[in-house]
Amino acid sequence: TEYKLVVVGAGGVGKSALTIQLIQNHFVDEYDPTIEDSYRKQVVIDGETCLLDILDTAGQEEYSAMRDQYMRTGEGFLCVFAINNTKSFEDIHQYREQIKRVKDSDDVPMVLVGNKCDLAARTVESRQAQDLARSYGIPYIETSAKTRQGVEDAFYTLVREIRQH
Rank of each mutant, 00 (worst) to 15 (best):
K4C: 05
N25G: 08
N115P: 01
R160M: 08
K4A: 09
R148D: 10
F81M: 12
K41I: 12
V159A: 06
G150Y: 06
G150V: 11
R134Y: 05
V43I: 14
L78I: 12
A58M: 10
S135K: 13
E36A: 01
T86L: 13
V159S: 03
E75K: 07
R40G: 05
L119P: 10
V113K: 02
R160T: 08
G137H: 03
K146H: 15
G114R: 03
R127A: 15
D56Y: 02
A121D: 10
G59N: 01
K41P: 12
G9N: 01
D118I: 01
A120F: 08
L55M: 06
G150E: 15
C79Q: 03
G150M: 08
C79H: 03
T86F: 12
S126L: 08
S126C: 09
P33R: 05
R163Y: 05
R122P: 12
D131L: 09
I141V: 11
V102M: 13
G114M: 09
C117A: 12
C50P: 07
F27G: 01
R160G: 08
S105Y: 08
D56S: 00
D68Y: 04
Q130K: 11
E125L: 11
S144M: 06
R122I: 08
D153M: 05
L5N: 01
D153K: 09
F155K: 00
E75F: 10
L78G: 02
T19N: 09
R101Y: 06
L22W: 09
A65C: 10
C117L: 06
I162C: 05
T73V: 12
V44Q: 09
L132N: 06
L132Q: 05
E142N: 04
C50I: 07
V7I: 13
T86S: 12
V7N: 01
T19Y: 00
K15Y: 00
I45A: 11
K146G: 15
Q24I: 14
C117D: 13
N25V: 04
V28F: 09
T86G: 10
Q69F: 09
V7D: 01
I99C: 05
I54S: 03
T73I: 08
A82S: 14
N85I: 04
D32P: 00
T143Q: 03
L112F: 09
E161C: 10
Y63R: 14
Q94K: 15
L18V: 11
Y140C: 06
S38I: 07
G11W: 12
Y136N: 06
E61M: 15
G137K: 06
E62L: 14
Q164S: 10
R127K: 14
K4E: 06
E36I: 01
V43G: 09
A154H: 01
T49P: 10
A58Q: 06
G76I: 15
S135Q: 09
V6K: 03
T1R: 11
A58I: 03
V43N: 12
I141Q: 04
K103N: 08
G47K: 07
S144R: 05
G12W: 09
R163F: 09
I45N: 09
R148I: 13
V80C: 10
N84E: 14
